[in-house]
Design a protein around this nucleic acid. Structure first.
Length: 481
RNA sequence: GGCGGCAUAGCCAAGUGGUAAGGCAGCGGUCUGCAAAACCGCUAUUCACCAGUUCGAAUCUGGUUGCCGCCUCCA
């Protein structure tokens, strides 16, 4: 099975061939830690989480590096406003980031380096750039000279001449070219600072990624990812720095995820429509968010709306509903199930994922299996042949394998529905004991064939957003939404 | 001004040369005391529009229209 990846650098899908057989080295730009994670971060993080999970599922030995930018203008400004230490601010948001990732069921990266812990390496790379003539010093700052890097613009597909025309960049007369960017910035009093050959200062934004990625992954590595917005200037500058410093191809495959819109509007601070991850999680199950994000291709824009999220919830309910049905019939997943040869996973899901991580198509496969298993359960209501049981358990194994790559279906069906019930009740401040009482009363009424009373109780529950299901094993209730 | 993307059913969304996946919603049916859940069936002769290439196009080419993103910190 061959994996094809859309490479931003080539603007087309390419066969994926890692530098080293069986191993993948991958770097993704992590957050600048000056504020809480929003849904845009969530999309990026989930996209690359799934990519890593899939690469591992394919048997690759993956080294995944995701950094923290923990010193930067934005951090310093925010800390200034709050009157606290910039590094303490960074620390706070790093810890918040970890909390968010845990909730989102995002696996930890192999290495999670911070800029402030790699100042020596950063200085070393800057020195190399100065030595090779790509960087120049102005007072106590160091700049990169974009005109000297002949391939400048190859990732973003723009030329320096074109950009000059409509450029809205600040004119710093000291710079040789307006697009020259800072490698090292001298620090003002009170800012975080490190000693360097150019005096006290701190690294520019782009250099840390060149320094840290190559330190852990080598001077040429396989995959570099991030949001589309990073293509220019950040990733363009990373290429310029790294290829100038090391004289080698920096990255073989560039992967960029699309944006999240909110109700068809670009999410931005000026519009005030930022949605913080914590807020979403209050209303929706994290797995519903993942399912929503992954139901569209990672490169396309995706529109976050309550309607779309409710559809994702409905889909997730459907899958967990089936898992619950299977568990009631055949018990929880056994060790034997885990070693089953899951052909649908292997032949359909992986085929979809091999085509530039087409999760939307993969999810379609998942739902097909769900429907097929529900049908089998319906058809064999009374007596299950060994063959039918095998098929259903195989189907479940397929579903769970797909879920594992997508990072969903991580809970037991009981827990999933129990959690859903309790948060649903809490939202409306309803007491579950009262519901149990009403249901008991209704069961009695039904036994007495007092349908009028039974239906009235059901109607009352309906008004409380609770749905009754009279199954062969008894009456159960669910929160509608 | 420069660069790039997108347009598929009521909605969301896959599909990049071989005759339209999947989800949500809706309608009809099976099941049920009635429901719910689940399943079955129906819902795009057609993929923004026009022209072209081809035995064959949603898919390729040219043009038109509309929407969006980037070029400034941004996932």
């Amino acid at each position: 099975m061959t994996l094809r990846i859309y490479n931003t650098l080539k603007r087309k899908k390419e066969l994926f061939e890692p530098v080293e057989d069986g191993r993948v080295s991958m770097y993704v730009c992590g957050p600048t830690v000056y504020d809480s994670c929003h849904i845009g971060h969530a999309r990026s993080v989930v996209t690359f989480d799934v990519i890593v999970r899939y690469l591992k599922a394919k048997g690759f030995d993956v080294t995944y590096v995701r950094n923290f930018t923990d010193v930067d203008d934005k951090i310093i400004n925010r800390a200034d406003q709050l009157g606290i230490d910039p590094l303490a601010l960074a620390e706070k948001y790093i810890s918040e980031f970890y909390d968010d990732m845990e909730v989102l069921n995002v696996e930890k990266a192999t290495i999670e380096p911070r800029a402030t812990e790699h100042i020596d390496r950063i200085i070393k790379v800057i020195e190399m750039l100065i030595e090779k003539g790509f960087a120049y010093r102005i007072d106590n700052d160091v700049y990169y000279s974009v005109e000297l890097f002949k391939d400048y613009g190859k990732l973003s597909g723009r030329r320096l001449e074109d950009m000059k025309a409509g450029a809205r960049v600040d004119i710093d007369k000291r710079k040789r070219n307006p697009f020259d960017f800072a490698l090292w910035k001298s620090s003002k009093p009170g800012e975080p600072t490190w000693d360097s050959p150019w005096g006290k200062g701190r690294p520019g934004w782009h250099i840390e990624c060149s320094a840290m990625s190559t330190e852990y992954l080598g001077e040429t590595f396989d995959i570099h990812g991030g949001g589309k917005d990073l293509i220019f200037p950040h990733h363009e500058n990373e290429i310029a720095q790294s290829e100038a410093a090391f004289g080698k191809t920096f990255v073989r495959y560039w992967i960029h995820n699309g944006f999240v819109n909110i109700n068809q509007e670009k999410m931005s601070k000026s519009l005030g429509n930022f949605i913080v991850l914590k807020e979403i999680i209050k209303h929706y199950h994290p797995e519903a968010l993942r399912l929503f994000l992954l139901s569209k291709h990672y490169r396309s824009p995706v529109d976050f709306t309550d309607k779309a999220m409710n559809e994702a919830v409905a889909g997730l309910d459907k899958i967990y509903g089936l898992l619950e049905r299977i568990e009631k019939q055949f018990g929880p997943v056994s060790g034997k199930d885990k070693t089953r040869d899951t052909t649908v996973f292997r032949e359909q899901f992986c085929l979809a994922m091999d085509d530039d991580f087409n999760t939307a198509l993969g999810i379609a496969t998942l739902f097909e299996v769900v429907r097929n298993m529900n049908r089998l359960l319906d058809e064999n209501k009374n007596s299950f042949s060994q063959n039918a049981e095998n098929k259903v358990c195989l189907g479940r194994a397929d579903i769970l394998k797909m879920g594992a790559v997508l990072g969903i279906l991580n809970e037991s069906p009981e827990d999933y529905f129990a959690k859903k019930r309790s948060t649903g009740l809490a939202k409306k401040s309803i007491d579950s004991e009262m519901i149990d009482k009403m249901i008991k009363k209704r069961i009695k009424a039904r036994k007495a064939k007092n349908w009028a009373m039974a239906d009235q109780i059901r109607k009352q529950l309906e008004e409380m957003n609770i749905t009754i299901e009279d199954t062969t094993e008894g009456t159960i209730w669910k929160i509608k939404n």
